[in-house]
Nucleic acid binder design. Structure first.
Lengths: 210, 210
DNA sequence: GGTCGGATAGCAAATTTTTGCTATGCTTTT
DNA sequence: AAAAGCATAGCAAAAATTTGCTATCCGACC
């Protein structure tokens, strides 16, 4: 049922070990008859350029060495209008996933997904439907509901704290009274109910506030 | 020459897709006859516990979901004294690689390495020699002068601080005197010459120490 | 057999952060 | 116009962190 005729999968991931290994996985389970993997953007694009118009399924890593897979989308579309693009990412940030989603690729999969999710994704994409990893769906939902809102000014100060600036240093840089900086800290710490600046910074990082 | 009899490879990587795929790679090229992959620490440890004393080659991801592969080393050693441990990491930070090296695992490989490097690594490890990816060797050479070193214990404490634990909390969790925790903080802060814990944490994050 | 570094622990003092409470302008929303 | 929320600022006390200095134990290395 999954053994569609002459479908080609192409993988681009700068972690060569993953690219090579993943191509074996796609072959082994009969998900594709032909699989080609690349760990360099240039080779990948060259191959794509020579691929003509045949139907191609592209597995694209989000984090490439110097850029993100997103930046390749226009080029991919130019080279092969019918290509299906599925993003693979190890990211855990709702903000990043939302960004990815906004680009509307054919699929978005977590690198932590299991074989069944991979198969579901392929089944959907083969029916011209879009697929997003249930794990990421959940991530997005949770983000909406648990969102603690920091004001723009608070986030600005928070960035200083996260860079290691003390109260005094932050006040100096932003031309504020140290009392004001303390007040901002206090307010943010109250919002997430914590007792120290490191906890606040950790929270902010985990929730991609900064 | 590579087809040693009844050698077992075990993979632990929280990116299930990689773990599964990589196991296929190890099998396909005859690098191992038996390969088992896990994406959860618990399952991995349970398997290891039941493995008896046979020779095992462990491929360990550096970044696990809540901790680093490093923290599993004692447990691995306890469960199987003869296990060979090879780290796989996508990290690019000299400091992190140095840290990894200090633990003296049997092998350290970049996830961006090619098949030949993987084979060289295995050849070395099978001769009871230690192997480090040439790419990482170069990375370390280039940064020898500016390298700041944290000890394993320091990094352990650092992770607590980064999670927001105070001195008292950290001491409590690790069954230490708060004086000891202070001493560790002090030492690390002296190493990077900073005056507050947030600066230390920021440094550690930027240099991928934690 | 001695030196060195790492992990442990302590005291006292200086400094910074955190907390409890208050207050004044300034927008935005109702 | 009142209310609500944001940015600003202050004082004082409590708590935590940082610093200067010392010291023991242990294992590794020469």
């Amino acid at each position: 049922m999954l053994t569609n005729d002459s479908q080609l999968a192409v993988i681009l991931d700068d972690h060569g070990l993953f690219a090579t290994s993943f191509s074996l996985l796609l072959e082994k389970y009969g998900l594709f008859h032909f699989v080609k993997s690349f760990d360099r953007k240039d080779d990948f694009l060259r191959f794509l350029a020579s691929s003509g118009t045949q139907k191609i399924y592209i597995f694209l890593d989000y984090y490439l060495s110097e850029e993100t897979g997103l930046s390749l989308l226009p080029e991919i579309d130019r080279l092969n209008k019918d290509a299906k693009t599925i993003f693979l990412t190890s990211a855990l940030s709702p903000l990043l996933i939302q960004t990815l989603k906004n680009y509307n690729p054919d699929g978005i999969l977590s690198k932590s997904c299991n074989l069944d999710t991979l198969k579901s994704c392929l089944a959907s994409v083969r029916l011209d439907q879009h697929f997003i990893d249930p794990f990421f769906e959940k991530l997005l939902e949770n983000h909406q509901s648990t969102a603690v809102r920091f004001t723009p000014r608070e986030i600005e100060l928070l960035k200083h704290f996260a860079r290691g600036d003390t109260i005094a240093k932050t006040a100096e840089k932003l031309f504020l009274s140290s009392h004001t900086v303390v007040a901002h800290r206090r307010k943010m710490m109250a919002k997430i109910n914590c007792q120290s600046i490191t906890q606040l910074i950790t929270f902010a990082r985990e929730h991609e506030v900064i």
